[in-house]
Simulated assay, not measured.
Amino acid sequence: MNIGRKFAALEEKVTNLSASVFSELQGSKDVYMNIGRKFAALEEKVTNLSASVFSELQGSKDVYMNIGRKFAALEEKVTNLSASVFSELQGSKDVYMNIGRKFAALEEKVTNLSASVFLELQGSKAVYKEVEAEIKKLQASIINAESQLGFVTASQSKACCPDGWVYRSMSCYLFSSSKMEWHAAQDDCRSKQAMLAVINDRTEWDFVRNWTIPTYYWIGLTDEHTGRWEWVDGTPFTVDHKEWMPGQPDDWKNHSLGGGEDCAHLHGNGKYNDDHCTRKYQFVCERKLG
């Protein structure tokens, strides 16, 4: 049984080669895992082939010759694989050694960096303490400045605004408790060296209506002189309907008071509304300082 002997020799060769390879693989399991899988697959093929061979040997001579050819081809494959494996192993060793050298160099860099950072931190602590001290000084200065500003503002308000008036941004505001027609209210404000309030921007509008809600207050806005809405100091006014009551201004005339609605007031929700100037509402006077 020449094939049987060949198969036994081949099986021994594969087993020895497998043992040799896995011995080599102990150095770096991750790198050589692929090679191990190749040999495991090869061993499985040889084992399966062994069973197939001895089954086929029970048949005819032609089958026997065919098996001989298969084994010759298998022997050649194993020989080539052996050479390929050991070549790959040698290359993997070089890669592994190179990685080892790189890791050693990296370890050295980390050690040096750690020492450098530690020294840097020692110097930074002193600088940090100096900066912290300066920050505390600045904070104290800010608190002092805020305190002085509050004192000056309060003093200025008290000194420049009459009793009962409210100070804001270089203006004094009087929110009346009495009710008058629009023109009478304007005359009353003038008698106090003021005028009906002129609202220049959204922040001032928010400030004024914060005091007027939920009551109607006349302000210094009219269209009776030019047909266009403007403030009593001559400043033009651009109508933004989002700031007005719905559908306003409408110059409504069906009120039996004669004429239209030429004077503006702040509604109970703080929005603008036009109305007949003879209606009696509370009003806002504004006196500008400086």
Rank of each mutant, 00 (worst) to 15 (best):
F237K: 09
M97I: 10
T153G: 00
R190L: 05
E132H: 10
H225M: 13
E134F: 05
S18N: 11
S18Y: 11
T226H: 04
R168V: 01
N98Q: 14
N80T: 14
L57N: 05
Y217E: 04
T222Q: 09
C160I: 13
W218L: 01
A115W: 04
A8L: 14
I135C: 04
W182K: 09
Q122W: 03
S82Y: 09
K137C: 02
Q248Y: 06
D274V: 03
A83I: 15
L221I: 03
E146S: 07
K109L: 03
A159R: 13
I142A: 02
H241T: 13
E130L: 10
E261T: 08
S114T: 15
E146F: 00
N34Y: 10
Q26Y: 12
Q58A: 09
F237D: 09
N200E: 14
E43A: 01
N16F: 07
Y128K: 09
K6H: 14
V85D: 04
T15H: 07
V208Q: 06
N2M: 08
E204G: 02
G227K: 03
D94K: 10
N80P: 00
K93N: 05
K179W: 01
T226M: 00
D262V: 03
E134H: 09
E261Q: 14
K29P: 15
S28D: 15
L266N: 04
F71Q: 13
P214G: 11
C172V: 03
L289R: 06
D240Y: 10
D250S: 11
H267K: 06
V85C: 05
I143D: 11
W165G: 11
R37G: 01
S171T: 02
S50C: 02
G150R: 05
A73F: 03
R279P: 00
Q248K: 15
D262M: 01
G290P: 11
R190F: 02
V198K: 05
N80H: 07
S124A: 15
K93A: 09
L119C: 04
R69H: 10
G100N: 07
L119D: 12
A9Y: 12
V284T: 00
W244Y: 02
M33V: 13
G290V: 12
V127K: 08
L113K: 12
S87V: 09
K136N: 10
G258D: 02
